[in-house]
Every structure is written in structure tokens, then in C-alpha cells.
Nucleic acid binder design. Structure first.
Lengths: 229, 229
DNA sequence: TTTTGTGAACTAGTTCACAGCT
DNA sequence: AGCTGTGAACTAGTTCACAAAA
């Protein structure tokens, strides 16, 4: 008989009805939005899934299917109105409100991320950096993001309505910091530290593992080299 | 009839026989290696796929299958010898030689990545930073990585046997920099700039898109909020 | 007995191909 | 005519379950 633990990993976040949309799809929505921004800036008014696919190396059917999860945004015989679709995507992705971000760890990486222009672009606001070092607390990043003591996390998160945390602390303290972040009521975490982190199921934890990325390139190189005759 | 363009995206890197191993698998190898390092440091001599899976929230069958692409490293009735498997994985991932990395762009992000300790860990060496600004060229990162003029890229890549480039320049110049990197003979590129980049098929281009990652979290938050009763 | 290595079954994700709308 | 939205077909990836090895 089949074991019944099929839902063990994802667990029961499932309050919302739209449980089924995959992360691959939502990542692509983000990509589509970027493409639409470029098209809009270039003055393009309307675009077909076919044209969008060709221009950005995507698959037309996939674009249509991804969008179809959320509604019928296209016009048959015409395509999609760029502005309209942009607006819809921003709304679907929750970018129609200002989202405030805290960065945990005011080291090299944390400070770099705090001033990273790409984050501000689509309506994110880096509100705060947190660290433990008293030499850093009270200072600001070059771009002006204030550095707070991590003990004040809960307070500042409330005060500034911060909803996303970025983990940029050394690996050994990462789990502890995640725990603090979760305790402060944050429900979405982007982790840059290597290794496995635990978070309760109602918290979305997304990891960017730089070591894995580099080693994947190393593998590719190792394969290529081994066979050159 | 089936269309014959099935190989169009991946194109013909395929000189090596082992074309079939997926990127998801190689990423996991990297994760396994990290787990084994921890176990080894903890003095564990031998581990079964079952135990490894439980300890790190993986699937035992998948571990075995991933490893099986590359050989029979286990001992039936026993499991895997930690040291042995570590050595094999390092060899498979090409980490048994020193890999030198260049970082393109000595801005906030580039400088942070240059001194990121996680990279040095598994045998990578950040050899050089490249920038165009004459105020930066000749200086060093805090950790001591020298900053060169991008015009000297080809020369330094040869001199230092650099095989991996990391793109940490602003989005508008990213494609140009990738072209330079490719022209310098580099075959593996880790890109941090948002948007699509072109590279010839013999070059492996891996992208970490911070905007997409954040927007994916935003989507998650938007879903949760919309339904709280 | 324990645990690997692996075909078979299953699940997820992508692409095709076309009915139906404009 | 042109293009979307979508079931059906296909492909990739994961998990099961067991024969074979130690």
C-alpha cells in the first residue's frame, strides 16, 4: 500500500485555494514582468505570446499556460496589451504595494545587498540592517540604510512593517537568526547562507546557495576537460 | 510528426559521453558533499543513504540514484564510507584541483563576493577583480584580491589560469562583459545581473536572479494575505 | 540481516496541436 | 486571418519496492 506521508514536506500551509501553482511558474511570472517592462519602455503596446517567446527565448505555450492560472489576460487574434498585463502581473506577484525588507547581517554581503539597486527597482524597500556588533549598530550603509541591534528586531519589524528578511550572516549563526526572524513574525525569508535551515511551514524560506552554484560550474568544467582528445 | 528541434536550447556541448546527468542531480551532489563534510568533522566513519536522508531531509532512493550515475560507491549491508564518498564527490565535482575565479565588477556586490568565505571553502580561489574605473584599478578588496583593468582580462586570465567568471556588473553592461569573458576563453560563468544573457553553447552560464527570488517571496505573501478570514 | 543499486510506477512539468474567440 | 486558452501527448524527475550483494 502507498505510504500516507505524501504531504509531509510541504505540510499544511494550504489555507489559500490556489495551492497548485508551482514555484517554477511564479519565477517565470517574474521574468515575464521584466520583459514587459522592457517592451513598455520601448513603446510596445501589444505583444503575442509567440513574439514574447521569440524575443526572450521562452516557450509560447508555457507563457500562455502560466498566465492562464490567474485569469484570461489576452485578446484572441491580438495578443496581450503590454500595460495591462504588466499591471496584472504586478498585482499577482504582490508588487502593487510597497514591501519592506530587513537584511540580517551587516557584513560585506549584507551591506552590498542593502545597496543593491535591483531590489529597489520593483517596489521593494530595504528598511533596515541588523547586526550584533556594537561598532556597526547606529551606523548606516553607504546607501543610507540604518543598522540596528538585532535585539531590537521585533520592535523595528513592527514599526516599519517589514515583511521579508534576507539572511546574510555567517553559516554558523544562520539558524539562530532565522529563529529570531520567525519569532518577530516575518513570513518570508531569503537565505544566502550555505546549508540547511529549518523554518515552520507557514514561513516561506528560499535559499540561494552560492557554493552549490559554483560547484555546479566546476562539475561542468570537469566533464568537458575529461574528454578532450 | 515530432519536430526535430528538441536539442535546440541545450545545443551541442555534447562531446562528453555523460550527457544525461541533470543539473538537479549535480546540485544535489554538492549538497551531499557538504553533509559528508559535516559528518566527517563529527567523526562519523560510515553512513547509510537512509541515515543521510533523515538527517538532512533528503530522499534515500534519490541519493542512491544520484550517486549511481557515477559508480558504485556503497557497500551493501553497510552504507557508504564517509571519507571515501567525500573523495569521490570531490573528484566528480572537479574540486580535486584548485579552480581560480575572476569577479567582474568591483562594486559593492563584486567586492563582497570577492571576500565571501564560502567560496574559498571548497578549493575555489578568487584570483582577481576586474573593473573599468581607474580609481579602483590597482587597489585591492579588503580581503586582498587585486583589482585589474578589464582591458587586461585576457592577459590575467591566462597568467592566473582563471577558469570561472562571476558577473557582478550593472545589468546594462552585463552582456558586454559576458562577451569579453567568453572572448578571454572562459567556459563557465556565474551571473548575478538580472535579465537574459547570451553565451555560446560551449560556455556554461548559470544565473542567480535576486529580483526573481524576492518577487517569488512577494507572491507567497500576496497569496497568504488574500485569504485570511 | 542490512543496505545498496535499479527497474517499474508514479508525479510533475513542458510542449503540442487545435477548438474557439475576435 | 490571427492568437488565445487548454486538453492531450510527451518528457523529465522522483519515489517505490525488491532482487542481489555483503
Amino acid at each position: 500500500m502507498k505510504t500516507s506521508n505524501k504531504a509531509s514536506t510541504r505540510a499544511s500551509t494550504g489555507r489559500q485555494g490556489s495551492d497548485q501553482v508551482s514555484e517554477l511558474t511564479t519565477n517565470r511570472l517574474s521574468v515575464y514582468l521584466r520583459c514587459l517592462n522592457l517592451l513598455d519602455d520601448a513603446g510596445v503596446r501589444t505583444i503575442s505570446s509567440q513574439a514574447l517567446a521569440e524575443q526572450f527565448h521562452l516557450n509560447a505555450a508555457q507563457i500562455r499556460k502560466d498566465l492562464a492560472y490567474f485569469g484570461e489576460f489576452g485578446v484572441r487574434g491580438v495578443g496581450y496589451y503590454v500595460r495591462d498585463l504588466k499591471r496584472h502581473l504586478r498585482q499577482i506577484l504582490g508588487l502593487d504595494r510597497k514591501l519592506r525588507v530587513a537584511i540580517m547581517g551587516a557584513g560585506n554581503l549584507g551591506l552590498a545587498l542593502a545597496d543593491y539597486p535591483g531590489f529597489r527597482q520593483e517596489g521593494f524597500e530595504i528598511s533596515a540592517l541588523f547586526d550584533t556588533l556594537s561598532t556597526k549598530v547606529g551606523e548606516r550603509s553607504r546607501g543610507g540604510v540604518p543598522i540596528y541591534d538585532i535585539h531590537d528586531l521585533k520592535k523595528i519589524v513592527r514599526r516599519d512593517s517589514i515583511s521579508i528578511a534576507v539572511i546574510a550572516v555567517p553559516a554558523p549563526s544562520a539558524q539562530h537568526v532565522v529563529n529570531l526572524v520567525v519569532a518577530a513574525g516575518i513570513k518570508a525569508v531569503l537565505n544566502f547562507s550555505p546549508g540547511t535551515l529549518e523554518a515552520p511551514p507557514e514561513v516561506k524560506l528560499k535559499s540561494v546557495d552560492l557554493t552549490v552554484s559554483l560547484e555546479s560550474l566546476s562539475f561542468f568544467l570537469a566533464q568537458g576537460d575529461g574528454d578532450e582528445t
